[in-house]
Write a protein that binds this DNA or RNA. Structure first.
Length: 584
RNA sequence: GCGCCAGUAGCUCAGCUGGAUAGAGCAACAGCCUUCUAAGCUGUGGGUCAGAAGUUCGAAUCUUCUCUGGCGCGCCA
C-alpha cells in the first residue's frame, strides 16, 4: 500500500506486478534481475523513472522499446496505481517515466496528520540489532581532528540507522592495555619529576606532548609515591616501576575529557568498552576456542591464526613466542563479546591507518563463525584524514607552533552545527578539506546557514500569520490542485525523498547524500519562496484561505523535513535567525 | 615489491549495484529588494570525466594496463 511504503518502493511493486502479468502472458521466465526505480535527471521528465525495459528486453526477445510499451500498457490497467498518475511516458532509449499527481500527498498524509514523524514511523522496518563502534581513540591524549570527524560521521549514521528501524548500540573501545599505557605512565613520571625540578630528557618512546604536564597537575595530588632518584638511569627504572600508578588515574582523566568533548559535540555513547576488561580471561577463552576449532597453529614458539585461508595476506600472530597475547587476539576476544551480546550486525569505523587491518579482522570473525551465512554482517568504514585549510593552504597541525591540533581547539573556534555538517559532506573514505574560512568568516555563504535559514523563514511565515506552527495540521485533502505549478510540486516531491534517502543510507552508509538532500531542499524552497507574487503565503492565506492552507501545509512539511534532516546530522534547526547588521 | 583509497570546471567536490544533454558550491561577470528575512533568486562563461585498450544497445561508472598523489604492509597498539 502506498501509505506504508516509500513512493519508490510502491512504484517498484506496481512495476513488478505488471512485469509478472507480462511474463505470464508471454511465457517468459526471468532470472537474476532487480526492479530499479531511479530519479530522472530533472522534474520535467517526471519524479521517478525505470530503466527496466532496457535491462530485461533480452529475456523477451524484443526490442527495449517494445517491452517498455507493453509494460506501460499493463501499468495503465493498474487500479491501485492510476489514481495517482498524471502520465506514464516512454522516453528514449526506453525509459519508463512516471509523472505523479499531487493527490499522492493526501494519501501519505491522510487525515489531520501530525506529519512527517508519523510517516517515517510507518515506513520503519525491523532490521535487527547493530553495534557501531567508532572514535575509539587511544586513552593517551586529547581527541584529534580525525576523531572529531569519526564522531560526527558515526553518530549521524547511528541516528539514521535508528530511524530506518535498527536497534542501534553506540560503543567506544578504549585501548587501556599494553605498551602504550606503560609508556604513558613513564612519560608522566618524567613530567612529574620535571614539575618538581628534575629536568631529565624524555626517553625516545615517550609521549612528547605538552598536555601531559596538565594531566600530571590534575592527578599528582592523589599519588602516593616514594622519593624518586635523581640520576638518569636510576630514574628510568623508578619510572618503569611506577608507570601504572601514573597511567591508571591519567587514563581515567583523559577518557573523562574525551567523553566531555564528545558530549559537547552532541555525541554520546551507550558504552565505553575497556580492553583491560578482556584480560586475561576473555582473551584466554578466545584462544582456547580458536584452538579447539583448529583455527590456530604453533610455529617458532608463537601461535598463528590461519587468517590466510580466509582472505588475509598471511597468517597472523595471536600469541607471541614469549607467551603474551597480541593486540589482535584481544581484538578478536572483543569481537567475540560483540557476537555473544547478540548483535546481528557489527559495524566499525576506523582511522586511516587501519585499512590494512580489515582483512585480518574479517578473517577472525570468519574463524569465529560469524560470517557463515552472510558476509555483510561485519563491515568496516575507514574515516580518512582531514586537512584544515586556511588562506588556501593546509594548516600544519602542530601544537608547538600554536596551530590546530585537537578536537577541542576546533570546537573553540567553529560552531558545532558547522563542524558536523562539514564532516559529513564528503564520503568517509575520502580525504576531507575543511575550509576554516568558509566555516567562519564567510559564514553568510555557508551551506549550514543556508539550510537553517530556509527553515527559519518558514517559521517566520507562521509567526506572521498568527498561527501556531506545531498545532497547524498538514492537510491537503481537496486542495491538491493548489500544489501544481510555481515550484510547488517539485518542492513536495523533493521533500518526500527524505524517506528514500534514509533507506539508502541505512544500506550503503553514504551519509553525504543527506547533506546534499538538505541543501537541495533548502534550494527548492528558496526558489519557491522567491516567486513573491505567486507564492505569497501570507497574502494567499488572507485572501484565498484554501490555497493558503495548502501552501502552509506544504511549507510546514518542508520545515519538518529540514528539521528532521538536520537532526539526523546532529545539527540544530533554529526557528528564527537574524543576520548581524553589515557595515552600510 | 604487494595491497587499499583517490585522480571529474580555475579551486573544493557530487554523480559510480552501467543509463537520458556530466551537476553543485566557491571564484568571475551581468541582472533582481513598494510585496512573508537579499544569509535570497535568476542568467552567462568555464569539462579530451588522468591516459590507453576492452566488455555492449549504452561507460565518468565495469575489466586490464600505464601515469600521478595519499596511506598501509610488526611476535606495535
Amino acid at each position: 500500500m502506498l501509505k506504508d511504503e516509500t513512493i519508490r518502493d510502491w512504484l517498484s511493486l506496481r512495476l513488478k506486478r505488471s512485469l509478472d502479468i507480462l511474463c505470464q502472458k508471454e511465457g517468459v521466465r526471468l532470472s537474476n534481475y532487480s526492479i530499479r526505480i531511479d530519479y530522472p535527471p530533472n522534474f520535467s521528465l517526471g519524479q521517478y523513472a525505470s530503466p527496466l525495459a532496457m535491462q530485461l528486453s533480452r529475456f523477451f526477445d524484443k526490442k527495449p522499446q517494445e517491452l517498455a510499451h507493453g509494460l506501460v500498457q499493463t501499468l495503465r490497467d493498474d487500479d491501485e496505481l492510476m489514481p495517482y498518475v498524471e502520465k506514464i511516458e516512454l522516453a528514449p532509449p526506453a525509459f519508463i517515466n512516471f509523472t505523479l499527481k499531487s493527490n499522492i500527498a493526501s494519501a501519505i498524509f491522510p487525515h489531520h496528520s501530525n506529519g512527517l514523524e508519523e510517516y517515517l514511523k510507518r515506513l520503519m522496518r525491523p532490521r535487527g540489532k547493530i553495534i557501531v563502534e567508532f572514535v575509539s581513540a587511544n586513552p593517551t591524549g586529547p581527541l584529534n581532528i580525525v576523531s572529531a570527524r569519526a564522531a560526527a560521521f558515526g553518530d549521524s549514521l547511528c541516528r539514521i540507522l535508528a530511524v530506518a528501524g535498527y536497534q542501534v548500540y553506540r560503543e567506544y573501545y578504549v585501548n587501556d592495555y599494553g605498551n602504550q599505557v606503560y609508556w604513558l605512565g613513564i612519560s608522566l613520571a618524567y613530567r612529574y619529576a620535571e614539575a618538581l625540578g628534575l629536568g631529565l630528557p624524555l626517553p625516545e618512546n615517550a609521549y612528547q606532548g605538552e598536555y601531559l604536564k596538565d594531566i600530571v597537575k590534575k592527578i599528582s595530588a592523589e599519588l602516593k609515591l616514594p622519593e624518586f632518584p635523581k640520576e638518569e638511569k636510576a630514574f628510568f627504572e623508578w619510572a618503569c616501576e611506577h608507570a601504572m600508578a601514573f597511567a591508571l588515574p591519567a587514563m581515567q582523566y583523559i577518557v573523562a575529557n574525551q567523553r566531555q568533548d564528545l558530549k559537547d559535540f552532541r555525541v554520546e555513547f551507550d558504552n565505553f568498552f575497556y580492553e583491560s576488561s578482556l584480560h586475561p580471561q576473555a582473551v584466554n577463552e578466545t584462544f582456547q576456542f580458536l584452538k579447539a576449532n583448529g583455527q590456530v597453529y604453533e610455529k617458532d614458539g608463537a601461535w598463528f591464526l590461519l587468517s590466510s585461508e580466509k582472505g588475509d595476506d598471511k597468517d597472523r600472530v595471536v600469541i607471541r613466542s614469549d607467551g603474551r597475547p597480541t593486540y589482535f587476539l584481544a581484538d578478536i576476544a572483543y569481537h567475540r563479546k560483540k557476537i555473544e551480546r547478540g548483535f546481528d550486525k557489527i559495524l566499525n569505523l576506523w582511522g586511516p591507518d587501519h585499512h590494512g587491518y580489515i582483512a585480518r579482522m574479517r578473517s577472525a570473525l570468519s574463524a569465529l563463525g560469524f560470517l557463515q551465512d552472510n558476509p555483510e554482517r561485519f563491515s568496516v568504514l575507514i574515516v580518512q584524514q582531514v586537512n584544515l585549510i586556511e588562506g588556501g593552504k593546509t594548516v600544519v597541525m602542530s601544537k608547538r607552533l600554536g596551530k590546530f591540533q585537537t578536537m577541542r581547539d576546533l570546537l573553540n573556534r567553529i560552531p558545532v552545527d558547522v563542524c558536523r555538517y562539514f564532516f559529513v559532506m564528503r564520503g568517509a573514505s575520502n580525504h576531507l578539506d575543511f575550509d576554516l574560512e568558509l566555516a567562519t568568516t564567510q559564514s553568510e555563504r555557508n551551506p549550514v546557514y543556508y539550510i537553517q535559514y530556509a527553515h527559519a523563514r518558514i517559521h517566520s511565515i507562521f509567526r506572521q500569520a498568527g498561527l501556531n506552527f506545531d498545532e497547524f495540521p498538514i492537510d491537503f485533502r481537496g486542495k491538491e490542485s493548489y500544489l501544481e505549478g510555481h515550484f510547488r510540486k517539485e518542492l513536495l516531491f523533493y521533500v518526500l525523498r527524505l524517506a528514500e534517502e534514509i533507506q539508502d543510507i541505512a544500506r550503503n552508509y553514504e551519509l553525504q547524500s543527506l547533506a546534499v538532500w538538505l541543501y537541495e531542499t533548502a534550494h527548492y524552497f528558496s526558489q519557491f519562496y522567491s516567486l513573491k507574487q505567486e507564492n505569497n503565503v501570507l497574502g494567499l492565506y488572507r485572501e484565498k484561505p484554501q490555497e493558503g492552507e495548502a501552501l502552509l501545509s506544504l511549507i510546514k512539511l518542508v520545515a519538518l523535513a529540514l528539521e528532521k534532516g538536520l537532526f539526523l546530522l546532529g545539527i540544530s534547526a533554529p526557528r528564527a535567525m537574524h543576520r548581524e547588521d553589515e557595515i552600510p
